[in-house]
């Protein structure tokens, strides 16, 4: 469009200059000649001339896109049967125009990603939903989606076996000088504080924890109402937790106790068998000596 609009005044100027002058009066001087050659650029000249062509506005103006929005670049990013690897984006959309089918993941903004390495399939599954359309990924290109109902799922391990690293020793609870590395201070009214040993043998929270202590922006600790119903309930809950532990911790403790019992029983059994063996060996020896 731009090229055409720019070309027009040049063209006009060229035509003017080439036109044979019918009455070449003596008054028609060199300046006039130059005036004819002058380029007529932009609306400033039309403003001066007072003429405005409707065609100028109409030409291509409707084709202009609204420049005030950023393009969202939605739509299909992978076609059917195309190879993808886990995490590849298959489709970007607003809402679920397409639904996540076999081996795909629906993102937070409804973007559909591949969950496995394979080939993209666009399909419908009337048994799952009568009018939804799905995007899926299959392991071999010839496979068709949806898979027949009641057939075992097609799965891939997607893992490689490597040598297992034996775990390192647990981090020490005591420092080299024999004092604990951290102290847990349980508080009923406030959060439980964990104090860590510093290089100068003082105990304090980590810097990020100190940052947390300040609380959220615009909130001054201790300035609010001292006891709401909710807060009193919270205090009660924390007291209970300190005494009895949470349900989860209770379950964990029970499990640990159980494990301990099992361990002890196993040790006892091992000891007993060792004892029996020892006795048997002794008996044998005893038998042998008189012989």
């Amino acid at each position: 469009m731009q090229l055409r609009t720019l070309r027009r005044p040049i063209q006009a100027a060229a035509v003017n200059s080439c036109r044979p002058q019918a009455a070449a009066s003596p008054a028609c001087s060199l300046s006039n000649r130059f005036a004819l050659l002058r380029l007529d650029v932009g609306h400033s000249s039309t403003g001066i001339s007072g003429r405005r062509w409707a065609a100028v506005k109409s030409q291509g103006a409707y084709k202009l896109k609204n420049k005030k929005t950023i393009p969202k670049k939605l739509g299909a990013k992978r076609t059917g049967d195309q190879y993808v690897i886990p995490g590849n984006i298959l489709y970007k959309q607003r809402g679920t125009i397409w639904h996540a089918g076999e081996n795909t993941i629906l993102g937070r903004d409804h973007t559909i990603h591949a969950a496995v390495a394979g080939y993209v399939k666009y399909y419908r599954d009337p048994l799952r939903h009568p009018d939804r359309q799905y995007i899926g990924v299959v392991f071999s290109k010839v496979d068709k989606l949806p898979y027949p109902p009641n057939s075992p799922r097609v799965r891939r391990l997607g893992m490689v076996a490597v040598q297992r690293k034996t775990s390192e020793a647990a981090p020490a609870a005591l420092s080299t000088s024999g004092i604990p590395l951290k102290v847990v201070r349980k508080a009923i009214q406030k959060e439980t504080r964990v104090l860590h040993l510093q290089s100068d043998y003082s105990y304090r929270e980590h810097n990020w924890e100190i940052g947390r202590l300040v609380g959220a922006a615009g909130q001054v600790q201790g300035a609010g109402k001292t006891r709401s119903r909710r807060s009193s309930l919270r205090v009660r809950r924390r007291k209970k937790q300190i005494v009895f532990g949470t349900r989860k911790s209770e379950a964990r403790r029970r499990r640990e106790r159980r494990m301990e019992i099992i361990q002890r029983a196993a040790e006892k059994k091992a000891k007993k068998t060792a004892e029996v063996e020892r006795m048997a060996a002794k008996g044998k020896k005893g038998d042998k000596t008189p012989a």
Partner: peptide, 11 residues
Amino acid sequence: IEFKREKYESL
């Protein structure tokens, strides 16, 4: 043996 997730080369 320990199982690790298979790694894929970027396309």
